[in-house]
Amino acid sequence: MAAPASPQARRRRPSRLRVLLRDAGAVVTLAYLALLLFVAIAASWLAPYDPVRLDLTATLAGPSAAHWAGTDDLGRDVLSRLMYGAGPSVFSSIAAVMLAAMIGVPFGLMAGFFGGWVDAAIGRVTDALLSFPTILLAVGIAAVLGTSLTNAVIAIGIAFSPGFARLMRATTMAVKQELYVEAARAIGAGPVWLLLRHVLPNAVTPVIVNAGLLLGNALLAEASLSFLGLGVQPPQASWGGMLARALIYMERAPELMYPPGLALVLTALAFNSLGEMARRWLDPRSLSG
């Protein structure tokens, strides 16, 4: 009889959460994202002003006690617009990445698992889609669907999906070779069982990491579409849209480009760092009973 694994060995390993919290960068990231999420959800209670209320007596005013971040060309409160803009930015990037994964993952899984002509067919379309620059594809799709935030999310989701398909295909092909997949076949598992119980759970980690890393890209893509007038439509507030206004009034009020620009950069940094954290978090060695 082999000795049972010593219980100390298990206790000595610190919990994943504790390891994560020891990293200062991770703490700052999580704190920022928590704050952002709170602002995005509670913008209507937190914002000092109505984000679409015009005040033509106070246009392009710099920061003041009444307007901490100043006002825009129509006298709207920049801070309130920034807060209201957080929701569309954050939730649409999450939605776009989820959509991209929902489209790309099944195709990549099938291509990698079944191989043969299924793989060839999916591979061709994936290659073709990848040869469109992402934002170009998104602009094309947004142009067809019409200009709205929902359509921008769909456009970004479609544009990002071939990346997921290719990644999923590669990891599926690697996992398919694992002995435990063959072992499961030996106990009578059929293709669907193998895919859902063995291949997918073990191939999904890179996908989740990729999703985390893509959140930042999706955020910037959504901001780009809104900046170009293909996403959130005025007068609704969005960070990209605010930058579009700032561009027009750049000579008279250059300070208008800072609040939404910094918000975008900080959020994208936080999302990217979240992706890195996901990579460490999802290492299968960190699972424990």
């Binding site: 930058l243 975008l264 994208a268």
Partner: peptide
């Protein structure tokens, strides 16, 4: 790391 988080159009505006 920073460049990954920079929107093209904002850099252009700066």
């Amino acid at each position: 790391t920073l460049a990954d988080a920079l929107p093209y159009f904002w850099v252009a505006m700066l």
